[in-house]
Write a protein that binds this DNA or RNA. Structure first.
Length: 880
RNA sequence: GCGGGCGUGGUGAAAUGGUAGACACGCCAGACUUAGGAUCUGGUGGCGCAAGCCGUGGGGGUUCAAGUCCCUUCGCCCGCACCA
């Protein structure tokens, strides 16, 4: 069969993504390609792909484009590999920005949120994501948060929720509690008011119950980044040590404890004690302050100091001598002073420490400043006990105990154990494991959140809302024209009858931290329409999430809370597994140059044009522009590029292709005009190559590889095609999407070369095979183009590319005719030789030695050793 | 301070201990043209006419062979942090 000569590639229409992309999106939708059942019966293995769901701010940003493109590549690839793939999308729709919009623009949070969702849904759908949109939900709708209230009550009944007093950051102007992150230099981030510490009654999830398990199970999360596991482990913060009680020599009265309990990881150094230091918020500090203006002033001063990094760094150790003294359980008759110190944290341990200046630099600085003792107790290896004194630096390493009574002569570890035994014998302390993590306070004095389903009754206390009365709906008619929580100000909403006694009672007006909403949404996706939080069968089918993808910024809180929530849901029988996310991938950020105008204001990229000489000018004014750092896109720096504009101008496939190319997905990527243009050119080129092939009908039969009926160019193209299958598959399996892109560029180049060969036996068939394969390999990354190419090759087809199985490489075609071996002399490259694959060592040496360059390098030298790595390298080791 | 990561061409980056720089951007030269955000071809780590020499932040080591493994040092980035 004769091939029709290839026509020039430059004619014919260019790829019109503007019509093609919506066409294929509709085709996928009409065919229901990406829908799966809650409990499928098709026997396929399951794969649950999830990207962190977006907050509906109104527009998608490039971080979303990257996140959802990465997830879509995985979802489409796994689907082609024969998995039943669950790939849903929803909205993390509660939160403060909606309330701010209400205050600033008078639009109701619900209205604002729903409009944003509608706008963002359209933008996401234009990306051509393989999402089962029938599962979509928003956390702000009662159909979601009502079930969350049910979970809250289940957790309450299971003892995983409790109400307790706690210190909070209170913004007196906004009338609300602030998270630590919302307190900036001691002031509320919105109001600017000085934040007060208040003790409030709050609802807590008892996440500390699971601290040991949340820590231990990290080891099993072998498809999580090491970094994230380390961050979580540090957050949970397990440390072994002892609690030690020091009796007050003269107790302050019956209201105040008669002893001070400290936590220490170094009970071995108890004989090195020089003082006790209390946190300013410690009850004993408060008791001292109540009768002592100087102490009161000191405590107030500590409280006013910010907790920001810079402040801590520069803050000097400061203390206040209370005049109190404590006894020592292991040193009868001795007493030590009790100080209040600004460096002791109420949040960690017991809020009190014993100071051992010899073993802790902080304690040493403090002791030196206030003239306290600094007894040495640990002798570092190689030091002599006689005359050993504590110098400028505390020693916290291992050593031998001195000046420590019955511990003398023991090494540090043995002393630790012996000291704990002694403490326990004296009933003065006990060995304990201390955890840094604290319970999760979820009460927020906000309107736009999930109402906590509890009713406060003067007679019955906090009474759960009966299940039959769920959901507790947010009232729609609320006002945002005064500070504080609108739910509190509502004239009627909170006034209800007590479900237990029928008396007058009040609803809880606090709403849940929005982290609660995102702690179980992935379970809801398994059965989003159910009238219970989750259908157990559906949850068992899909969970855990096989691949979760999102930003590193959620490495701790969101992921830890979700891990806790799954355990709670397991304990209450909702789900069967404990870990929500079997695989986690944290993507890098999308960055861009930043620009500053002559007036010092940030400029958007579209306001700036680069000059040929590398400088930049304002598009309109032509004033010079300063090119700033390349950093994460952010509204404040205005270095953002709008995905909707990019998709309108270049198409979704171009945006997807660019965001996948160049950089590995876990690294930051710089968005550049030239990069996008390059991606766009490839999309057009691939289309053009396919069009050139589609113009010639595909011969019906496949010529045998290497047979006389197949020419060398055809054979080479077939090899390139099958190498591409193997290489792209490997790249997609390992999240090396940038390499998958590179391998497809190579396949396109091979097609281009074949195009120039002209007529050759078998080439037409090989070109069809190459293009058809390229379409399928492109499909996870540039799905619209893939469908378009598939359609061009076979306009009458009824199947979609996205429904085809993943191609398999023919092993016979992965072999090569010759391999190039590097020939080294003493490790230096001297030549390369071409040999058939699998050539024996003798043949390799012979070929190498025949090379003139090698001969010159070996001349006059004695070969003492020859190395042969098959198909790789020959190395001659010479003497002289 | 603690923890993690990263240093490779003009740029983004590749590289099971085995030819450093795949692929792309940019640049250079050429071809073509219905001048397009084209397309196609060739070239492009440095020095050198060449043979060749040098080259993965610096220094040392292991090895026939090191970007890769080990030690050390410098620089940058991210996270956490008065954690007892």
């Amino acid at each position: 069969m004769n091939d029709v000569p290839a026509t020039a590639a430059t004619d014919g229409p260019s790829y019109d993504f503007r019509t093609a992309e919506p066409r294929w999106q509709q085709a996928w939708d009409a065919a229901g390609c990406f829908r799966v059942a809650d409990v499928p019966a098709d026997g396929k293995p399951k794969y649950y792909v999830l990207e962190m769901f977006p907050y509906p701010s109104g527009k998608i940003h490039m971080g979303h484009v990257r996140n959802y493109t990465l997830g879509d590549v995985v979802a489409r690839y796994k689907r082609a590999r024969g998995y039943a793939v669950l790939h849903p999308m929803g909205w993390d729709a509660f939160g403060l920005p909606a309330e701010n919009a209400a205050r600033e623009r008078g639009v109701h949070p619900a209205e604002w949120t729903r409009a944003n969702i509608a706008a963002m849904r359209t933008e996401l759908q234009r990306m051509g994501l393989s999402i089962d949109w029938s599962r979509e939900f928003a956390t702000c709708e009662p159909e979601y948060y009502g079930h969350q209230q049910k979970l809250f009550l289940d957790f309450l009944r299971a003892g995983l929720v409790e109400r307790k007093e706690s210190w909070v950051n209170w913004d007196p102007v906004d009338g609300t509690v602030l998270a630590n992150e919302q307190v900036i230099d001691g002031r509320g981030w919105r109001s600017g008011a000085t934040v007060e510490k208040r003790q409030l009654s709050q609802w807590f999830f008892r996440i500390t119950e699971y601290a040991p398990e949340l820590l231990a199970a990290l080891d099993g999360l072998d498809r999580w980044p090491e970094r994230v596991r380390t961050m979580q482990a540090r957050w949970i913060g397990r440390s072994e040590g002892a609690r030690v009680r020091f009796p007050l020599v003269a107790p302050l009265g019956t209201e105040t404890p008669a002893e001070i309990e400290v936590f220490t990881t170094r009970p071995d150094t108890l004989f090195g004690m020089s003082f006790v230091a209390l946190a300013p918020e410690h009850p004993v500090s408060a008791a001292v302050a109540s009768g002592n203006p100087a102490a009161t002033a000191f405590v107030a001063q500590c409280r006013s100091m910010g907790t920001s990094e810079a402040v801590i760094e520069s803050a000097e150790k400061q203390g206040f001598d209370t005049g109190l003294r404590v006894g020592h359980p292991l040193m009868p008759g001795q007493t030590f002073p009790v100080w209040i110190a600004n460096f002791v944290l109420m949040e960690y341990g017991t809020g009190a420490i014993f100071g051992c200046p010899a073993g802790d630099q902080r304690d040493l600085d403090f002791a030196r400043k206030y003239g306290l003792d600094t007894p040495a107790v640990v002798l570092p290896p190689g030091e002599v006990a006689e005359g050993f004194v504590v110098g400028a630096h505390a020693y916290d390493g291992p050593g031998t105990m001195i000046n420590s009574g019955f511990l003398d002569g023991l090494d540090t570890d043995a002393a630790r154990r012996t000291a704990i035994e002694a403490l326990e014998r004296e009933s003065a302390g006990t060995g304990v494991v201390n955890w840094r993590m604290r319970d999760w306070g979820v009460s927020r004095q906000r309107y736009w959140g999930c109402p906590i389903p509890v009713i406060h009754c003067a007679a019955c206390g906090a009474v759960p809302v009966p299940d039959a009365d769920l959901p507790v709906r947010l009232p729609e008619d609320v006002r945002f024209d005064q500070s504080g929580n609108p739910l509190d100000h509502h004239p009627t909403w909170k006034h209800v009858a007590c479900p237990r006694c029928g008396g007058a009672a009040e609803r809880e007006t606090d709403t849940c931290d929005t982290f609660v909403d995102s702690s179980w949404y992935f379970t809801r996706f398994c059965s989003p329409g159910a009238d219970v939080p989750v259908v157990r069968q559906a949850a068992d089918q899909w969970l855990p999430v096989d691949q979760y993808i999102g930003g590193i910024e959620h490495a701790i809180l969101h992921l830890l809370y979700s891990r806790f929530f799954m355990r709670g849901m397991q304990a209450t029988g909702q789900v069967g597994v404990a870990e929500p996310f079997a695989g986690l991938f944290t993507q890098g950020m999308v960055t861009h140059e930043s620009y500053k105008g002559a007036d010092g204001r940030w400029l958007y990229p579209e306001e700036v044009e680069r000059q040929p000489d590398g400088t930049a000018r304002h598009v309109e004014t032509q004033e010079p522009v300063t090119v700033g750092r390349i950093e994460a896109m952010s509204k404040s720096k205005r270095n953002t590029v709008d995905p909707a504009a990019i998709i309108a101008r270049f198409g979704a496939d171009t945006a997807r292709w660019f965001i996948l190319s160049d950089n590995p997905p876990d690294r930051d990527i710089e968005w550049t005009e030239s990069g996008v243009a390059g991606a766009s050119r490839f999309i057009q080129r691939a289309h053009r190559l396919a069009a050139g092939v589609a113009r010639v009908p595909c011969p019906p039969s496949m010529p045998g590889v290497g047979s006389a009926s197949m020419g060398p160019a055809a054979a080479a193209l077939r090899r390139a095609t099958h190498r591409a299958i193997a290489a792209v598959t490997e790249a997609l399996e390992t999240f090396a999407f940038n390499l998958a892109v590179a391998r497809l560029y190579e396949l396109a180049s091979a097609l281009g070369e074949a195009e120039r060969v002209g007529a050759e036996d078998g080439l037409a068939w090989a070109r069809h095979e190459a293009v058809a394969t390229m379409a399928r390999l492109l499909a996870p990354m540039a799905p619209h183009l893939a469908e378009e190419i598939g359609w061009m090759l076979d306009p009458g087809r009824t199947s979609l590319i996205c429904d085809l199985p993943w191609p398999e490489a023919d092993p016979d075609l992965l072999t090569v005719e010759t391999v190039t071996l590097a020939v080294q002399v003493m490790g230096k490259l001297r030549a390369t030789v071409a040999l058939p694959p699998g050539a024996e060592a003798a043949a390799a040496y012979a070929a190498a030695e025949a090379d003139p360059n090698v001969q010159r390098a070996l001349e006059g030298r004695r070969v003492v050793k020859r190395i042969h790595v098959p198909d790789r390298i020959v190395n001659f080791v010479v003497a002289g």
